[in-house]
Simulated scan of single mutants.
Amino acid sequence: MLLLLLGIVLLHIAALVLLFVSTIISSLLCVNDALANADCGSLIDNALVCLLPPTEWIQAVQALMILSIIFSCLSLFLFFCQLFTLQKGGRFFLTGTFQIFASLFVMSGAIIYTVMSPEWVSDKYTFGYSYILAWVAFPLALISGLIYVILRKRE
């Protein structure tokens, strides 16, 4: 049982780290050539565009990503609280619900970015690693949320 709990916590922390990195590093867009692997902040002179214009939908994506981090942190905190206070045989419904909400916020933010970016992105640009990390964090958060809902507390 201890290994199961440790695996679940590690899965949750991995999803949380991916959410933090994809939100803090705003590299959602990079040039699609040899410069694409370079650091986004260091090549401003070479027209490597990594900072996005402050439009309403970008702010919505950022808000959804921040909400996903908040819900994921709350979910981890609730898991540890419920681990010590939940009755034997009880399920971690509240923890799982918060984590599923976090995954839905990530998915919503990534979908908004995907749908709205063709309006201003030309063919020479490609999605950056923050965008990819957000899509990787989505299934990890969803899986951990579903595991929390299924998990029962044992002695």
Results as ranks from 00 to 15, higher is better:
residue 1 M to R: 04
residue 3 L to P: 05
residue 3 L to K: 07
residue 7 G to P: 03
residue 7 G to D: 08
residue 8 I to K: 14
residue 9 V to L: 09
residue 9 V to W: 02
residue 11 L to R: 03
residue 12 H to R: 09
residue 12 H to T: 09
residue 14 A to T: 12
residue 16 L to H: 08
residue 17 V to D: 03
residue 22 S to F: 12
residue 23 T to D: 02
residue 23 T to E: 02
residue 23 T to P: 00
residue 24 I to H: 14
residue 24 I to S: 14
residue 24 I to E: 12
residue 25 I to V: 08
residue 26 S to A: 09
residue 26 S to I: 04
residue 26 S to N: 04
residue 28 L to V: 06
residue 29 L to I: 15
residue 29 L to H: 07
residue 30 C to R: 15
residue 32 N to D: 13
residue 33 D to M: 02
residue 34 A to G: 12
residue 37 N to M: 14
residue 38 A to Q: 07
residue 40 C to M: 06
residue 40 C to P: 09
residue 44 I to E: 14
residue 44 I to R: 15
residue 45 D to V: 04
residue 46 N to D: 13
residue 46 N to K: 15
residue 52 L to C: 09
residue 54 P to C: 00
residue 55 T to V: 11
residue 55 T to L: 07
residue 58 I to Q: 05
residue 59 Q to C: 06
residue 60 A to E: 10
residue 63 A to S: 13
residue 64 L to A: 11
residue 64 L to W: 01
residue 66 I to E: 10
residue 66 I to F: 12
residue 68 S to T: 02
residue 70 I to S: 02
residue 71 F to C: 08
residue 72 S to R: 10
residue 73 C to A: 14
residue 74 L to C: 13
residue 74 L to K: 05
residue 74 L to R: 03
residue 75 S to W: 01
residue 76 L to D: 02
residue 77 F to Y: 11
residue 78 L to A: 14
residue 78 L to Q: 09
residue 78 L to I: 11
residue 78 L to T: 05
residue 79 F to H: 06
residue 80 F to W: 12
residue 81 C to H: 10
residue 83 L to R: 07
residue 87 Q to K: 15
residue 87 Q to P: 05
residue 88 K to H: 10
residue 89 G to R: 08
residue 89 G to Q: 10
residue 92 F to P: 04
residue 92 F to W: 03
residue 95 T to E: 13
residue 95 T to Q: 13
residue 96 G to E: 02
residue 100 I to K: 06
residue 100 I to Y: 13
residue 102 A to M: 05
residue 103 S to T: 03
residue 104 L to N: 08
residue 104 L to C: 07
residue 106 V to G: 01
residue 108 S to M: 12
residue 109 G to W: 11
residue 109 G to A: 07
residue 110 A to V: 01
residue 110 A to T: 07
residue 111 I to D: 02
residue 112 I to R: 02
residue 113 Y to M: 12
residue 113 Y to G: 00
residue 114 T to E: 14
residue 115 V to H: 06
residue 116 M to R: 12
residue 117 S to Y: 13
residue 120 W to P: 01
residue 121 V to F: 05
residue 121 V to H: 03
residue 121 V to I: 11
residue 123 D to E: 06
residue 123 D to G: 10
residue 123 D to V: 00
residue 125 Y to L: 01
residue 127 F to M: 04
residue 127 F to R: 01
residue 131 Y to E: 05
residue 131 Y to S: 01
residue 133 L to V: 01
residue 134 A to G: 13
residue 135 W to Q: 11
residue 136 V to G: 02
residue 139 P to F: 07
residue 139 P to H: 06
residue 144 S to C: 13
residue 145 G to A: 04
residue 149 V to S: 10
residue 152 R to A: 13
residue 154 R to G: 08
residue 155 E to Y: 08
residue 155 E to G: 14
